[in-house]
Design a binder for these strands. Sequence first.
DNA 1: TTAGCTGCAAAGAGTTTGCTGGGAG
DNA 2: CTCCCAGCAAACTCTTTGCAGCTAA
Lengths: 123, 123
Amino acid sequence: MKKDYIFDVIKNSPNSLTAEEIYNNVSQNININLSTVYRTLNNLVDKDLVTKIVRQDKISYYELADNEHKHYLICDKCNQAYPTDMCDIEKIERKIKRETGFNITSHTLEFHGICPECSKNAK
Amino acid sequence: MKKDYIFDVIKNSPNSLTAEEIYNNVSQNININLSTVYRTLNNLVDKDLVTKIVRQDKISYYELADNEHKHYLICDKCNQAYPTDMCDIEKIERKIKRETGFNITSHTLEFHGICPECSKNAK
DNA sequence: TTAGCTGCAAAGAGTTTGCTGGGAG
DNA sequence: CTCCCAGCAAACTCTTTGCAGCTAA
């Protein structure tokens, strides 16, 4: 089943990937159509096996839905995304829940800036 | 100039608005084209008068670029966005800067869940 | 056989762009 | 007279959908 190929690519990637990146990657091994990739991806997201995140560039990024909560530092120059696990937002979530009654189920956090590499090159 | 109408709508809105909402709003007073709205919006963003945020629904939301840093609680049922100012992320930013050298210039944070209203109705 | 996968092409949504005419200074 | 602004239609990108054929249990 082609789903396995797609899931494998996601599983083996340290970063979140776009549908196109996944498509390119899977295409190296088998014939596949972009629609199939999207359809499968939505399927995996529905089953909570994969998480989809829409970034400021309006593109969907997919990553393994493990419980390790990650966020990304995105360089506005080279567009590389560096994962970080420094996320104390659970605290903020609890506070919001307590003070507003809003029942939070998820959050997305995205940092933008310039990575060390790029700021070095700029000099 | 039509730019003023658009800027006024944004200025007078407590929430962030989509291009379409702005278009509808401005249309009540003058004739205007959607492209003009988009063009003007991009213009205002370039001049740092307006901030553009892409949410998980892949739609761009525009708001006044004041320094009051706001984030939104977005209800997955009614899709209403409630602003919150409980954002201690500056702390996290400093920590990241210190530990990784990544020079953060901005961030976006989006909470998803069910608002009190909707959880009440669900019962 | 039945149900679920696929490919292909077309549609869709939000946004941008090229070209042109029009208005302000 | 210039130049920027605005309207219109077409283009663009990413993603979804309808349909038909295929595959596997």
